[in-house]
Design a binder for these strands. Structure first.
Length: 421
DNA sequence: TCTGGGGTCCTAGGACCC
DNA sequence: TCTGGGGTCCTAGGACCC
């Protein structure tokens, strides 16, 4: 029988900010999405004020002002680095673990039967907090879905104190009853409504639901979910991440944009960063999709996309930019006020397995040399030190993302180290 | 006025082939 | 005039996750 421990960092982005700014302790703090649009992380104090996950900032201005909520823009360099520190610490406690997201990891505790798992969990929790400053909660159970549920209860129950072991099954029924069906891992907004309409309100009722009803609406994923709730493990630990299937780069603009030229600049910039990522991971893309959308909160919400096949899989920035610009010109419609463009690179292969073509018009050797040189210069002198003209150089690029409340990159930039004085 | 970004998996439907 | 059915591949869209 497998045993999984899910370790989840509490209010992760907020906790990262607090490590370097202890005065934030005990205060309501939120971290915002790109363009400072929505609250994507909230401290417990902020949650208590009624600030919901994903709440648009303009709707909570009053709460922020009246309660002196501390507001931060996202600082992914900082959070990524803190995440690595947490994961390195966790790795010492198990031979097998899966880094599930920036703030979560599954630990395999299958052969730890002789230990008191709750006590072991406490040791993990204390160590992570001492070594990194990040508070975590730990849920332990026989399937990943049940471990998620245990984690949720560990986080919010006073008695559990941050660690809950449900692996022996004794309190499982009670635990399932205490968790709303809508909060079960794999149940989203649509399915939550479907379940509510059928009076399936908590995880226990969901576990005992009729397979055929679930199957019809939620497909095979729903059946797997039921099995997981019943203690039959369907999702195993993935130690090494499978090969990536796509790379997405998309941004919402500060303002709406009508001009094709500006959209072309933006799309060129996104392709540049996507291509950089491809090369960093030694991949090449066979297909590129361009997406163009107006604001989904306005009338006549409109989105278009177009997939363009590359003649040969590539990670050459210029080639990909050309392809994306062609695609964009085809889907662009004059008179629309666009709010977002994005590109998706897919049909990915390892760069050394790319199929050569007799009809290839590009000198691959030269292109490789050029890309290497560009990456070296940007690594050395800061990203964007050298870039394609297609990205544009005017100062007033309306598509640039805004971060008005960004904290310093304390751990990844020498010039932004915190000072103790 | 102001509403994020990056992923995966599954399904349905169309094109095509035998 | 009558006109099958199954397999595969591709794509777009939906639902979910963090």
């Amino acid at each position: 029988m497998p045993v999984f421990a899910l370790v989840d960092c509490n209010n992760f982005y907020v906790s990262c900010e607090r490590v370097f700014n202890p005065r934030l302790a005990g205060k309501p703090v939120i971290v915002l999405s790109n363009n400072d649009g929505c609250a994507v992380a909230r401290s417990n104090e902020a949650k208590a004020l009624g600030i919901e996950m994903g709440a648009p900032v303009f709707q909570i201005r009053e709460i922020i002002r009246n309660n002196q909520v501390q507001v931060y823009s996202s600082n992914y360099a900082l959070y990524g680095d803190m995440s690595r520190r947490v994961m390195r610490t966790l790795a010492r406690f198990t031979p097998k673990m899966e880094v599930y997201s920036i703030d979560e990891a599954f630990l395999d505790l299958s052969h730890f039967g002789r230990f008191d798992l709750t006590a072991y969990g406490r040791r993990v929790k204390t160590t992570v907090e001492q070594w990194t400053g990040i508070p975590v909660s730990i849920g332990i159970a026989g399937t990943k879905t049940l471990a998620k549920i245990a984690n949720r209860l560990a986080k919010y129950s006073h008695k559990a104190g941050g660690v809950l072991d449900l692996s022996d099954g004794k309190y499982l029924g009670q635990a399932l009853e205490a968790v709303a069906a809508a909060d079960v891992w794999g149940v989203g907004r649509k399915h939550a409504k479907f379940l509510a309409d059928r009076k399936i309100r908590n995880a226990r009722q969901l576990r005992d639901a009729d397979d055929s009803v679930i199957r019809k609406k939620m497909g095979v994923v729903g059946i797997r979910l039921l099995n997981e709730l019943r203690g039959i493990s369907c999702y195993s630990l993935e130690q090494s991440p499978p090969q990536r299937k796509s790379i997405v780069v998309s941004r919402t603009f500060k303002n709406e944009i009508e001009s094709l030229d500006e959209l072309l600049e933006a799309v060129s910039a996104y392709v540049s960063s996507g291509a950089e990522k491809l090369r960093k991971e030694k991949l090449a893309a066979g297909k590129l999709t361009v997406q163009l959308t107006t604001s989904r909160f306005r009338e006549n919400y409109c989105r278009d996309s177009m997939a363009v096949k590359l003649p040969v899989q590539t990670h050459d920035t210029a080639e990909l930019i050309g392809c994306a610009r062609d695609g964009l010109r085809k889907i662009y419609k004059k008179g629309y006020r666009y709010k977002k463009v994005g590109i998706v690179l897919h049909d990915l292969s390892p760069e050394n397995l790319v199929q050569a073509s007799f009809l290839d018009a590009v000198d691959r050797e030269r292109s490789e040399k050029l890309m290497r040189a560009i990456d070296l210069i940007n690594d050395d002198m800061g990203s964007g030190a050298i870039q394609y003209g297609a990205v544009g150089w005017s100062r007033s690029q309306g598509w640039k993302t805004a971060f008005r409340h960004r904290s310093p990159s304390y751990t990844t930039r020498w010039d932004q180290l915190p000072e103790v004085g």
